[in-house]
Amino acid sequence: SRSVIRSIIKSSKLNIDHKDYLLDLLNDVKGSKDLKEFHKMLTAILA
Rank of each mutant, 00 (worst) to 15 (best):
K30Q: 08
D28I: 08
L42S: 00
A44F: 14
H39N: 07
D17M: 12
L42W: 04
S11T: 08
L23E: 03
S11Q: 11
I5C: 05
H39F: 15
R6Q: 11
D34Y: 11
K36V: 10
I16F: 07
H39A: 12
K33W: 07
D20S: 15
E37T: 12
G31T: 13
I5Y: 06
F38C: 01
I45N: 02
T43Q: 11
E37S: 12
F38K: 00
D20L: 15
I8H: 03
R6S: 08
L46Y: 02
V29T: 09
D17R: 14
S7G: 09
D20A: 15
I8N: 03
I45K: 03
A47S: 09
S11W: 09
N15Q: 09
L46T: 03
S11M: 12
A47H: 09
L25F: 04
M41E: 04
T43K: 12
R2D: 05
D24Q: 15
K36S: 08
I45M: 10
D28S: 14
K13S: 13
M41Y: 11
D20N: 15
E37G: 07
K19D: 01
I5H: 01
L23T: 03
N15D: 10
Y21T: 05
L14G: 02
K10N: 09
L14H: 01
F38L: 03
L23V: 04
L35I: 05
R2A: 09
L14Y: 04
S11F: 11
K13F: 09
L25D: 01
N15G: 11
H39D: 04
D34V: 05
N27R: 10
H39G: 08
S12F: 06
A44D: 07
R2W: 13
A47I: 09
L42M: 05
E37Y: 10
D34F: 09
S11H: 13
L22E: 00
S12E: 02
K13V: 08
D24W: 15
N15C: 08
K19M: 06
L35P: 01
D28Y: 13
L35M: 08
V29K: 04
S1P: 11
L25N: 02
G31E: 06
S3E: 12
L42T: 02
I45D: 01
L35W: 05
I9W: 00
K40P: 00
K33D: 11
D20F: 10
K19V: 05
A47L: 12
L25H: 03
T43C: 09
L42F: 05
